[in-house]
Design a protein around this nucleic acid. Structure first.
Lengths: 117, 117
DNA sequence: TCCATAGTTCGACAATAGTCGAATTATGGT
DNA sequence: ACCATAATTCGACTATTGTCGAACTATGGA
């Protein structure tokens, strides 16, 4: 991942409302959520939300598809993974003990959901 | 980690120059780098750099100490780990296959450096 | 065709962020 | 005490970002 691309993704997430939306979509998984559902759940105005969904889309973090009158958004997991990989890419050179806990983080997150992966 | 705290950290990293500085410090490890060294290496004006170092410090991502006339900065690995943990916290609920590759990312980063952790 | 619903786009405005030159503080050496 | 080096703080200016109301586009149903 290019540095400029990482900055775009980080900028998109560096916003209370957008971070909230992104995490909801990450949680929602493959089926995703309709724009209207998100607007209702968060109490954000539809046009403001649309603007922020555009920013997340442009950053490649979410993907949309139309379904009837609704537009469904879902998280782009590949891109999320690339971003995380970029952030930790150099960490091992300095302090190996930073990398090790990453695996723990992954499995802890899974354990919290009662899953195994 | 609180959402607002994550936004602060993400905002700090959502800047070409600051992301560059942060990654250099991550790479540099425990000994860290002097402000002047970073300024020379990046070609950024000292005052501009200082401003950006302040932002990274306020976000908790880096830590400074004085050494003679120089001020040495180093990455705050704990905080970095917390941020990553926050970002992946919900991913397993939606798509378990996102969590699994995280462990791979960690070990890949290590392998690239020829280390084992 | 007409209407209601679902979202988006546009234009304007206020607030925030980024950068620079100049001045300031702190340390070490002579 | 004086000077040079290292870095920060201050003030001003420009550019960018975020939000809102209003208007617009697209879809599905009567």
């Amino acid at each position: 991942m290019e540095s400029i691309s990482a900055v775009t993704a980080l900028s998109a997430l560096a916003h209370e409302g957008r971070l909230d939306v992104f995490r909801r979509l990450v949680k929602a998984g493959e089926p995703g959520l309709a724009a209207g559902e998100i607007a209702r759940a968060t109490g954000v105005l539809p046009n403001t939300l649309s603007s922020n969904l555009n920013i997340l889309t442009a950053a490649g973090l979410i993907i949309s598809r139309r379904d009837g009158r609704s537009i469904i958004y879902r998280a782009a997991y590949d891109r999320m993974r690339d971003l995380l990989a970029f952030l930790v890419a150099d960490c091992c050179g300095g302090e190996p003990q930073v990398c090790a806990p990453l695996a723990a983080i992954a499995s802890q997150a899974c354990a919290a959901e009662g899953r195994s992966c």
